[in-house]
């Protein structure tokens, strides 16, 4: 992991800088970042998060809301998308590496690539679609095969609370399942920005 850390760092910085200040040339942008100078003082943690779940439960929307604080209807992800986000906490800097996977079955064979080495997994389901919770349970079984219980933080996320009128999965049902399996649990809405930051904070502080 240590060797990887160095390699990923340079990559993360540059891609973050581009999204923040696209007009600046590379050299200037680096000087302007406080993160570089602070690195010596505070530790930097690399934190790999993988988003898993069925098609159209809102994995990409959650990632997009968290990284860009915006919402837009998106089409199914092809393969997977990679995002980075830096978080400055008292205890240090956390660099999130977010792997947003495609929910479609044909990409399942490559999914294990994305969750290898992950520190946390968000198992996302859609509260208006019961079937997606069942699928999330299957994803959990997959994760349990791959990881030892203390190796990874897993959170069950019921997304789309803005559509509560069409709810098919009661909050208690998700909660109960999460409790029996020892998962974190939260209901979110990427659209109305409900608990999105909280869930990312929860997995990193756990």
């Amino acid at each position: 992991m240590g060797r990887d850390l160095g390699r990923h760092e340079s990559f993360n910085e540059s891609s973050l800088l581009q999204s923040a200040k696209p007009q600046l040339p590379m050299g200037m942008a680096q000087k302007a970042t406080p993160g570089t100078s602070l690195e010596g003082i505070r530790p930097t943690y690399l934190y790999k998060v993988v988003l898993l779940g069925s098609t159209s439960v809102g994995k990409s929307s959650l990632a997009y809301r968290y990284v860009k604080n915006d919402f837009k209807e998106s089409l199914p992800t092809v393969g997977c998308s990679f995002f980075t986000q830096t978080l400055n906490l008292e205890a240090g800097t956390v660099k999130f590496e977010i792997w947003d996977t495609a929910g479609q079955e044909k990409y399942h064979s490559v999914c294990h690539l994305y969750y290898r080495g992950a520190h946390a997994a968000l198992l996302v389901y859609d509260i208006t679609n019961k079937e997606t919770l069942n699928r999330a349970k299957l994803w959990l079984r997959d994760l349990e095969k791959e990881f030892l219980p203390d190796e990874i933080v897993i959170a069950l996320v019921g997304n789309k609370t803005d559509l509560a009128a069409d709810r098919e999965v009661a909050t208690e049902e998700g909660e109960e399942f999460a409790r029996t399996k020892g998962l974190l649990f939260m209901e979110t809405s990427a659209k109305s920005n409900h608990h999105v930051n909280d869930i990312f904070m929860a997995i990193v502080s756990n």
């Binding site: 990284v67 089409l75 992800t77 092809v78 393969g79 997977c80 998308s81 990679f82 995002f83 990409y107």
Partner: peptide, 18 residues
């Protein structure tokens, strides 16, 4: 065609088997 049919490539970096 793959690129023009998906807006999801606009965000982040995609890595996909093809």
């Amino acid at each position: 065609n793959l690129i023009s049919s998906s807006s999801s490539f606009r965000e982040g970096e995609a890595w996909t088997p093809i």
